[in-house]
Amino acid sequence: MADPLGIEELDQRISEVKTEIRKAVSAQDFAQASRLRTQLRALEAQWHGALELAESSVSGKPGNMQLPVRETVHQILTLLAVPAAPRTIVAVHAAFFAGELAGSQLTYLRRDEERSFRTAPHGRPYYLCSALTYDRLTAARGLIAVSSWPLHRRIVGTLSARVDYLRSAIKLAEHIDRTDRPSPAAQRLLWQVAAGIPNASASFGDARPASVIEAATAELSVHDDDDRVQREQAARRARKQLGDAEQLFGAPTLSAVRKAG
């Protein structure tokens, strides 16, 4: 038997069928529209089923007290303290957390958060939101941030990717330093991160937290001032120009403006 569709695939299929229904209605093909509606209802029933399954697999596994995806991502971002890409979040999860987290689970996270914010603004203690580009203040591609951070930390300037890499390396090293017996996965992650920082690891496959912190801090001191100026300027501009939702999820892109107009 074929695998049942995943919730994302169902999402996509549902929106496809809706488009088809619209087309059928505007072409006055009501017989086709009615067939498609039946199909849509079946898909929606499947969607609810898949959602229940996903919920039970997160909370219901015996001996596995795994948090919902949203909470997990929030914890990881709090650990890193910088906006991060799904790829990084998944890698950190694999190193420090039990259970599975797949990149595909993060695909619709930010969109769902935005929807929730727009229906009931400030209804939650925090939102998983976007990082903003320093020049256009639009959502930076592929980065997830936390709404409770100061705005300038969510701005991505030209040096921010490097600065954030170094900051998160320091945070990771500190976290591992605090852990009694870090897992091999955590040590491997630390070494991978250290490999990208000059003088951070002594030999292949080996990195000590103290040397990573020292090396990252040294490089950070080179970039930090320039980066901060750029970020704070952009943050001031964002506060002046953007509404609450845009400050969290980015200024609308030109094409979105065109569509709305």
Binding site: R141, L159, H223, L254, R258
Partner: peptide
């Protein structure tokens, strides 16, 4: 040199512009 670590993503998700 170490200070040269600027990274600017000029890509976009949209083809209409």
């Amino acid at each position: 040199p170490i200070p040269q670590a600027h990274y600017l993503d000029l890509g976009g998700d949209d083809d209409s512009v």
